[in-house]
């Protein structure tokens, strides 16, 4: 395996508050009125954590909410 030289690392864009909000919008894009309580709770917790600067924890909750949503039949 080759190890790339150079001091400049590539930025991971998904590790940001903006990506949190994007995930939150993805959740919102589903039918809001029929969202289960658990998913709403995960979304709110995730968004709050991202706002507080705990981006990775927030992302983890939002992703779990999306996975749950996709498993829930429409």
């Amino acid at each position: 395996m080759r190890i790339m030289p150079g001091p400049k690392p590539i930025i991971i864009t998904s590790d940001s508050v903006a990506f949190c909000f994007r995930l939150s919008r993805v959740i919102d894009s589903y039918n809001k009125g029929t969202l289960p309580r658990k998913i709403i709770q995960l979304r709110e917790e995730g968004t709050d954590l991202c706002r507080q600067g705990l981006v990775r924890s927030g992302l983890a909750r939002l992703r779990r909410a999306i996975i749950s949503l996709k498993r829930t039949p429409p």
């Binding site: 190890i3 790339m4 690392p9 930025i11 991971i12 864009t13 590790d15 940001s16 981006v55």
Partner: peptide, 25 residues
């Protein structure tokens, strides 16, 4: 698309494995 900001200059699409430094938050 994707979650990397730019294409790393040194990496060519030649199906080789690379180890790359990445910047998180």
């Amino acid at each position: 698309a994707g979650n990397l900001a730019e294409w790393p200059r040194q990496i060519l699409p030649n199906h080789h494995w690379f180890s790359l430094p990445v910047q998180r938050a």
